[in-house]
Write a protein that binds this DNA or RNA. Structure first.
Lengths: 251, 251
DNA sequence: TGCCTTAGAGTGGTAAGACCACGGACTGAC
DNA sequence: GTCAGTCCGTGGTCTTACCACTCTAAGGCA
């Protein structure tokens, strides 16, 4: 709740006011001088203290808020917010937006993260981590014929593996790509689902991944995981073909 | 150069003005309606057209600029900028800042990206990609005893592999983590370097990675790469030990 | 005495107007 | 033809004022 101390940002000449104020706060956030939950001074006081006008200060604060670093509440004040991965996700989406085939391409990033994560998890996963994954696996097996809960369990399974890796960086990046993953998943699920042979293979694949992890065998775990992704890829291709076959060419 | 058409953003009630304008532009950017290079209307006209005051509009534009989506030039105007990975890098840095051991942890992300990238590269790399990597390898071999250029060539080698994967997502994420990688690298390089035995092993390791890639053998390429990372890790540990050994404990 | 209502103070949200600083283009002189 | 100066359009900033929201505390009522 410390109301931040003010030191006039006399460095950083050449940058315009708002940008100066922006970097001022960003640096305090990076250095840990401002922690989540801290309340900033009132805008009028801050503007005075930093030697800028209120609109300029607001431009900077608003920018920080858009980045998810600040939580500005009408009538209450501005509070430092713990940076979550949602901003990262948005930034990534914006970066990747202009590129073609993003939804497929982001799958490569997913494979990259998960394969490394499961290797780390083989070394680092705690018993609790493994139990959690086992639990999700059970849910997965039970709900594999329900699209919604089944899809959720599927995602939870993979997320739990990444979490078990104990790597914050992998976790954050995985969270960042997950909104795009979701879009890809939704697009894919439209018609891929609901053939018993497929779903049972899917559950088996997950089980094998888990077993390799439980045996703490990195190479086999990664292999099982890659196998699982290959199956998904294969299914997708089959589906594409069967989708385009009946109606010749649509545009 | 299309000066954007204006449609009053009458949806999105409940959000404050600046945020409304922000999402207004963000959505146009995502949908491709605004392309890189486009010039926005003047602030005064935009404010009038969107039905907000100029300070409010500026708060939104400034936020977009901070995100790297807009390039606002004094005296010239505001231009749409191709989203590059630098913002992503900053966002990632901010997300990861509060966590301990980030510099080591981000290495895990690097390994993840590169291992998947080299697998893809084995399938997709063009002859030009391979030539480029070979060229960098030569530079690496020649300059392995110069800290600066050697370090640069090292980075360029790995970047070239990621580029050869042909995956935009992997590339963007790799670029995003590279500033953190740099920090880690600098920290590490302080004293790791300059033992001939080490540097020659380093060059050999790179060469082996390249050869596996040129033979388009994904499994071996990944193995070689992991080996390379392991060596680095081992060196780092040795160094830590030898650093702390001579002078007992320094605080 | 206790609770509810209400008014005030403090906060962010918005608007309008004016002026400054920079960049480019046009026009004039050389 | 070239160069310099001027002018206009642009973003950059400041000031002032007012509105809307939140919380709190004082006051009235039961």
């Amino acid at each position: 709740m410390a109301l931040i101390e003010i030191v006039r940002p006399d460095t950083d000449e050449s940058q315009s006011g708002a940008h100066r104020v922006f970097t001022f706060f960003r640096d305090r956030l990076l250095s840990g001088e401002l922690k989540a939950g801290d309340r900033l001074l009132a805008e009028r006081e801050l503007a005075l203290a930093l030697g800028v006008s209120r609109p300029v200060l607001r431009e900077a604060l608003r920018s920080l808020a858009m980045l998810g670093l600040l939580d500005i509440q009408h009538g209450r004040g501005a509070f430092v917010r713990a940076a979550d991965a949602s901003v990262l996700g948005h930034a990534l989406t914006l970066c990747l937006a202009p590129q073609p085939n993003i939804l497929d391409d982001v799958l490569q990033a997913r494979i990259a993260i998960e394969c490394q994560a499961i290797r780390l998890a083989c070394e680092r996963a705690s018993e609790r981590d493994l139990q959690a994954i086992a639990c999700i696996l059970d849910m997965l097996a039970l709900s594999f014929d329900e699209p919604e809960t089944g899809g959720g369990a599927d995602y939870a399974f993979h997320l739990a593996i990444v979490r078990a890796s104990g790597s914050g960086a992998l976790m954050k990046i995985y969270e960042a790509i997950s909104p795009l993953l979701m879009r890809s998943h939704v697009e894919r699920r439209r018609d891929t689902f609901r053939e018993p042979a497929i779903t049972s293979r899917l559950v088996d694949a997950h089980r094998e991944v888990f077993l390799s992890l439980a045996r703490r065998d990195p190479d086999q775990a990664e292999r099982a995981l890659r196998e699982h992704f290959l199956i998904g890829d294969e299914l997708r291709r089959k589906n594409l073909i069967s989708n385009y076959q009946p109606q010749e060419m649509k545009s």
